[in-house]
Design a protein around this nucleic acid. Sequence first.
DNA 1: TGCAGGCTTGTAAGCGCTTACATAGACGGA
DNA 2: TCCGTCTATGTAAGCGCTTACAAGCCTGCA
Lengths: 348, 348
Amino acid sequence: MATSEPGTRPTTIYSVAQLAGVSIATVSRVLQGTGATSAQVRAQVLQAVEDLEYVPRRSARSLAVQRHDAQGLVVHDLTGPYYSELLMGYESAAGEFGQSVIIVVTGQREDPERSVLELASRVDGLVLANSTLPDDAARALGRRTPVVMLARAAVPGCDAVSAENAQSARELTEHLIAHGRRRLFFVGDPEGSPDVQERYRGFTAALSSSDASAVGPAIRVDFRELSGAKVAAQVMGHSNGPDALVCANDELALSTMKALQRAGVKVPDDIAIVGWDDVMTARYVSPGLTTVRQPLFELGRLAATRLHERITGAPVAPEPRILPTELVLRSSCGCPETDDRDVPWVTS
Amino acid sequence: MATSEPGTRPTTIYSVAQLAGVSIATVSRVLQGTGATSAQVRAQVLQAVEDLEYVPRRSARSLAVQRHDAQGLVVHDLTGPYYSELLMGYESAAGEFGQSVIIVVTGQREDPERSVLELASRVDGLVLANSTLPDDAARALGRRTPVVMLARAAVPGCDAVSAENAQSARELTEHLIAHGRRRLFFVGDPEGSPDVQERYRGFTAALSSSDASAVGPAIRVDFRELSGAKVAAQVMGHSNGPDALVCANDELALSTMKALQRAGVKVPDDIAIVGWDDVMTARYVSPGLTTVRQPLFELGRLAATRLHERITGAPVAPEPRILPTELVLRSSCGCPETDDRDVPWVTS
DNA sequence: TGCAGGCTTGTAAGCGCTTACATAGACGGA
DNA sequence: TCCGTCTATGTAAGCGCTTACAAGCCTGCA
């Protein structure tokens, strides 16, 4: 009914109180469900609320209760399925707690630090993904508001959640060695992100406890799909090139694979390729890409949950929470084709 | 320095004023840049702000100025590259306007309508994507706050932005007809979303002005990748089946294509397949998937921009803003393979 | 009938910020 | 020297909500 006709002041708790014939305190009590109220009055108030289509202003409430009921999620970018899944998970958990989620993408902000600081002033806590803010900035932030680090190392005063990396990297590498591969290269820049660093660590660990060749220097390229051609060129330039490539993520693996195949290299016969993330494309290409699946949705949920715990009083966890990952064996590693695995029973 | 030691009250504009030896009004003026202030005082205030690491509480400001500097983005889900791109674009534009973006995913809310209403109370306006709220709810919302409809039909009182659909559907269909296809089927549920409905409209329009067969009923399946097998079964069950499939999106096209290929059907020789969205997989599969690229990032930017204009006073635009799309011809339609098109010069 | 104690409701004091308005200097011209 | 004008600053009134506290009412018991 009484929607904001031009000139009419928007409906507030005062309008409701007036219409219901009670004080604003009573309206507030009815709406919060705090304090005792008679059924009679409650009905009147609810009726008035409905008639006026009243929704309390959040800012007024936030100011009064000193709480925003909102969480901030800070990521570097949103490209690829990685962040979609993560964000879905995050939002789903936050929603259950009645928390809004405000997202800022630092990659497209000219002054990320300022943006995050500003964000901090409108949320009760925030989650910082990797490549967003340097550690010291994060630590400083952690002193003024609850902070959860996502997919990056914990800093003092902040919680951390992430998916397992080193162990699965090790398994993946050992799997390739078991396939008889001996000249394995890592593709990706370990300096680029904590995730990649961990993966590289697992990779070297597996190699050094095997009879495979000493580790070649990692082929350092950035994360993106674009880099495949560069990698392929470098690989083929080698006189005694690699017989297996462990790529830091699927985009890299796929574009490298495609570039290699186009140049006549057989995958996996001449060279095996594996990646990370289990993106949709991984199960559509031929050969299917062996990769590592991360529980992204769950990771998002975990981050939101942990942050909420912190906000509501839980202490900083002494240890980071690390979610297990899952090897997805297709045939780019040398395994036989198995159709079943490619049935998309799960949407990634 | 003076970060919140336990027991210390958090720093407010009062602390700053006190430290700087001025009144809170002056602090506010310096920080806003409104009103004249002497260089002397300005320096003192700024120094105090820095010393105390003061950041104004947003809720207090929002309450005072009756503005949130935040926009709400309401989507049904976030799966697939569609929403990542869109969200990136949205966030980038909103950030430039100094607006935060709060996102709610209705698909995982038990009471979407309530969630959105609540959202409305903490933002200055919102963008509603399709499949989130019914039109009448949207219209009601539009009466109390600026609303922009995204990829769905305008309703009175709301703006609308979307990507072109019917025209490109028509071109795509005509392209298939030019390849000699005569028994074209549409795959997807036109009732499911306004986008699909438009595409279907373009599809039928192209058919009816050609000598191609009358349109078979659309093969109605939902959007997701899972449906491919069903479609393939249905297609192959036909005695005189289709020689071309226009799929409502790439996920559908790709999974159908894979299922068909696995059953020995040759694409595009036996049957051509085309889709929508130009997802990453489209350029990695063989044959490359012919599809329609939507300017998702731009669409996101446009939505944010339009909403911001509305919030800052612009009237509702009489016409929806429609962004052009682009046919991406690969070989699943019958065109010869062209490698160049597959170079990922753009990340989608 | 009077009164203690339990419910329900109202009153009013914030929450931290912005901003209209009042005030106090500083300056220049008569 | 006095007064009108500006300019820089302070004062205080909100913004809409929550919540501690006060107050009023009703009940049951002595």
